[in-house]
Lab assay of single mutants.
Amino acid sequence: MGFKLLSKLLVYLTASIMAIASPLAFSVDSSGEYPTVSEIPVGEVRLYQIADGVWSHIATQSFDGAVYPSNGLIVRDGDELLLIDTAWGAKNTAALLAEIEKQIGLPVTRAVSTHFHDDRVGGVDVLRAAGVATYASPSTRRLAEVEGNEIPTHSLEGLSSSGDAVRFGPVELFYPGAAHSTDNLIVYVPSASVLYGGCAIYELSRTSAGNVADADLAEWPTSIERIQQHYPEAQFVIPGHGLPGGLDLLKHTTNVVKAHTNRSVVE
C-alpha cells in the first residue's frame, strides 16, 4: 500500500471513529477524501466538511520552486461564519470567499490569524475590503508590521502568557507558548472536538522541520505538551499544512522538532 493511500485511509478511519463516538456532533463529509496538494491548482481553494458547521479550507501556493498546501478553518456561528487564517495570499483568499459563498452561503463576518507569517495573514486586506472584521493577538499584529505583512485590524486580548485561553464565538483560542513562531495560536472547536494546530503542528508525513527561522526550538516541545494537557479530548487535529489526523500529530511534531534540534547540535 502506497504512503499517500495509507495517509488518506488514516484520515478516513479517524473521521469514521469520530462519527461513531459522537453521532450528534459529527456529520463528516462523505463526498470524498481530504484534498491534497496535487489536486488543488494554485489560485483555487477546496472546502472539506469535518463536522456539522465545521470545515477546513485548503489552498496551495508556490514557494521556492515548489507547491505547498495550506489549511485553515471555518466555523459556523449562528447565521454567520468565523474564518481562521487566510488562504495564503490575496488571490487565494478572494477564491476562498467565493467558494464559501458557493458552498455554504453564509457571510464571513470575523477572521482570526493564528500567527504573523504570510500563509496566515496574506489576504487580510481582501477580507477587510469584503467587510470582514480581522483579528490577531497584539504580538501577531506587531510582528506582521515588522515583517511588512498585512496586519489584522483588531487585537485579541488575554493571550499574552503561555497557557492563556479565551473564548471567541464558537471557538476557544489558546496560546501554548512559542513553537513554530513566538505568537502562534491554537484554535479548538469544543462542539466538535476539532483542534486546529496551525503551523505549530505537523502532518504525519512530514519528517523535516522546514521553516524554523522564527521558531523557538527549545520551547516548542513544552508548548505541545500544554496543548495535549489542555485538549486531551480532541479527536480531529488539523495541521497548518497537509493531512489531518488525531492527537498523534502532536507527538510526531515533537519528535521531528527534537530530531532537528539534535542534528543542529551535532553539526
Rank of each mutant, 00 (worst) to 15 (best):
E233D: 06
V257D: 01
L217I: 04
Y196L: 03
A130I: 15
G246V: 08
G198K: 00
S193Q: 07
A95M: 15
V124M: 15
A59F: 06
H252N: 13
F174W: 04
W88N: 13
V11P: 14
V237P: 01
I74E: 03
P176L: 07
G210S: 07
M1S: 13
P35V: 07
I74L: 06
E147F: 03
V54Q: 02
K8I: 09
Y231E: 02
P176N: 01
L6I: 05
G72N: 05
R120M: 07
S205L: 11
V256K: 11
T182I: 10
A213L: 14
E203S: 08
E172C: 08
D77R: 05
H117F: 00
A213W: 08
T253S: 13
S137G: 07
E39I: 11
P35G: 12
H117P: 00
L106A: 09
Y48N: 08
E267A: 13
S7W: 14
L247E: 09
P170W: 06
L143I: 11
I17G: 04
Y48T: 09
S161T: 04
R110Q: 11
A111R: 01
G197V: 06
G32T: 03
H230T: 06
A25F: 02
L24H: 03
F26A: 12
S205H: 01
V54D: 00
S193N: 05
G123D: 01
A95K: 07
I227L: 05
E150I: 15
D52C: 03
G158M: 06
A259E: 04
G32P: 15
D216G: 08
Q235S: 06
I100V: 11
A130P: 04
T222D: 10
F63I: 08
F116D: 06
R141A: 08
L73G: 08
E145M: 13
S27N: 02
S208C: 02
I40A: 05
E147I: 15
M1Y: 15
R167W: 04
E172M: 14
H117I: 00
L127W: 03
V146H: 08
Y188R: 02
D216F: 04
G72R: 00
Y196Q: 02
S56A: 06
R46D: 15
V194M: 14
N92T: 15
L173D: 00
G122Q: 13
S113M: 13
D52L: 07
G53H: 15
A133L: 14
F236R: 09
T261E: 09
A59C: 05
V42W: 13
G122D: 13
K258M: 13
E267R: 10
A144R: 12
K102M: 15
G123I: 01
S139V: 05
A178C: 08
Y175C: 02
G89M: 13
A87V: 02
S137N: 15
E147S: 10
P239Y: 00
Q235T: 02
P239A: 06
T254F: 14
D183I: 00
S56Y: 12
F174E: 05
R141V: 11
R141E: 06
D64P: 13
V121G: 02
P152Y: 13
Q235G: 07
H154S: 11
Y135W: 05
S30Y: 14
E219Y: 15
Y175Q: 03
I100A: 05
F168G: 00
I40N: 05
I58Y: 07
W88C: 13
E80S: 10
I84P: 01
L6Q: 03
I100P: 01
P170K: 07
A25T: 08
V54H: 02
R120P: 01
D79L: 15
Q61Y: 05
L156C: 14
R110T: 14
T207F: 04
G210R: 09
N255K: 15
M1L: 14
F174R: 13
K102E: 10
Y175S: 12
V121D: 01
A136Q: 02
F168R: 02
P170L: 09
A87E: 00
G245R: 10
H57S: 13
L204H: 14
P239Q: 01
A213S: 13
F168L: 06
T222N: 04
V132I: 15
K8S: 05
V146W: 14
M1V: 11
R206Q: 13
F26Q: 12
R120G: 09
R76H: 15
S7L: 03
D248I: 04
Y231V: 09
N211Y: 03
T261H: 14
L173V: 14
A144Y: 11
S223Q: 03
L247I: 04
E33I: 07
W55A: 06
T253Q: 02
N184G: 11
A98P: 06
R167D: 05
L204F: 08
I151Q: 02
P232H: 05
D77P: 01
P138A: 11
P190I: 14
R46C: 12
G246I: 08
H252A: 08
L247G: 11
P69F: 15
A98D: 02
L156S: 03
D125S: 04
E267C: 14
I238P: 01
L82G: 05
A66N: 15
H252K: 14
P221I: 11
N71R: 12
I104V: 08
Y48P: 08
H252M: 05
M1I: 11
L217N: 12
A111W: 06
G105S: 14
P41G: 08
V256A: 13
Q229D: 02
Y68K: 14
I84F: 06
I238C: 12
L13T: 12
E233Y: 12
Q235I: 01
L127A: 10
V171R: 00
T140D: 01
E99Y: 03
E39A: 11
A111F: 04
N255S: 09
P138K: 03
T140S: 12
T261P: 15
D52H: 03
T153R: 08
V256Y: 03
P239V: 10
P244L: 05
A94H: 09
V187D: 01
K258E: 13
F3I: 15
R128G: 08
S191Q: 11
D164L: 06
A98I: 00
T182C: 14
V256L: 14
E203Q: 15
A66Y: 11
Q235K: 03
G240H: 03
F236W: 08
V256I: 13
S27D: 09
I227K: 00
G65L: 11
D118S: 07
V11W: 14
I58W: 05
V166W: 06
P23F: 10
R206N: 14
F3E: 09
L247Y: 06
A90K: 05
N71C: 03
A19I: 12
S208K: 11
A98C: 15
P138F: 12
V212F: 09
F174V: 08
E219N: 02
L143M: 11
G245T: 02
G246Y: 08
L6Y: 13
A133C: 14
I151R: 07
A213G: 09
Y188V: 07
A209C: 13
P41N: 09
T140N: 02
G72I: 00
Y175F: 06
T93G: 04
P41W: 08
H115P: 00
W220D: 02
S205A: 06
A200Y: 01
L96M: 13
R46L: 09
S208M: 05
G245F: 03
A90I: 06
G122T: 05
